[in-house]
């Protein structure tokens, strides 16, 4: 379970998060929505302990991680699997080496076993054919899928964290990624999806948070989201209804 208790965070003089409090249980599918620069990615980084809050507490599975050292945080991070914006693949390694990175680092598997596991993970995400390619030879969609495969190789995560997993992708590839994200969460593992694409968020999540000016403007389920009177959310919902209309008229 993730608990944010009155968390403040700022980059210099820019207060990104102001007194944020929320709780996410480990089997929930949560989407954090908001415009660019509203602190959505910052929340993911705080959960992983990559940055420290200015004030407040972050509690993961009952443990306050706010003041943990880098070594202590390693154990906490193993509970999560994150896919960063645009994949964050190691650009000097090919797809196989990227996915095998953690296996080589931590497991005692032989090279044959690593090869087998890498192929298996790439098959799950549907990019087995790209095993020898370098990251700069991959399309945006393939990039994200390889990043998902790599995050799966890292550990047996309790929760998945996705940072703008579908941003910059065409609708077909975005849909593939959404389905993949849902498939991976089928066995009850929760996720936090950070996005500004509400159309993709409603496909995946069951709970929605909306960040604006450093505070959570809205926190509720799909039903509450649809009937929300918050003007910013209405703008986002209009995008969804326009997309739906376009889909219907397109047959």
């Amino acid at each position: 379970m993730i608990v944010f208790d009155k968390v403040w965070f700022s980059y210099g003089i820019n207060h990104v998060l102001k007194d944020i409090s929320f709780t996410v249980s480990e089997n929930e599918r949560v989407a954090i929505l908001g415009e660019s620069g509203e602190g959505k990615t910052t929340i993911l980084k705080l959960i992983l302990g990559l940055i420290r809050p200015d004030a407040g507490k972050i509690i993961i599975d009952g443990e306050d991680i706010t003041n943990k050292t880098e070594d202590e945080l390693r154990e906490v991070r193993m509970k999560f699997s994150i896919v960063f914006q645009e994949g964050a693949l190691f650009d000097s390694l090919n797809v196989k080496e990227n996915v095998a990175f953690c296996l080589r680092e931590y497991s005692k598997l032989s090279e044959d076993e690593i090869d087998h596991k890498v192929r298996e993970l790439l098959r799950i995400v549907g990019v087995e054919h790209a095993i020898e390619l370098m990251p700069d030879e991959l399309s945006g969609g393939m990039h994200r899928r390889v990043a998902i495969a790599r995050s799966l190789a890292a550990c047996e995560p309790k929760m998945f964290l996705y940072d703008e997993a579908t941003t910059g992708l065409d609708p077909v590839n975005a849909d593939i990624i959404c389905k993949l994200i849902l498939d991976l969460s089928k066995n009850g593992r929760g996720l936090i999806l950070v996005t500004h694409k509400i159309f993709d968020a409603v496909k995946i999540a069951e709970r929605f948070m909306f960040l604006k000016d450093g505070i959570i403007l809205f926190d509720g389920d799909k039903e509450e989201l649809v009937h929300s009177t918050v003007s910013e959310i209405q703008i986002y919902l209009n995008e969804v209804s326009l997309s739906c209309k376009a889909n219907k008229s397109g047959g």
């Binding site: 999560f80 994150i82 964050a88 693949l89 650009d91 680092e105």
Partner: peptide, 17 residues
């Protein structure tokens, strides 16, 4: 460029110093 591409964050998440 590794910092900007979140590759360093990836390393830290994977438990690599």
């Amino acid at each position: 460029s590794m910092i900007l591409g979140h590759q360093i964050d990836s390393l830290r998440v994977f438990g690599v110093d």
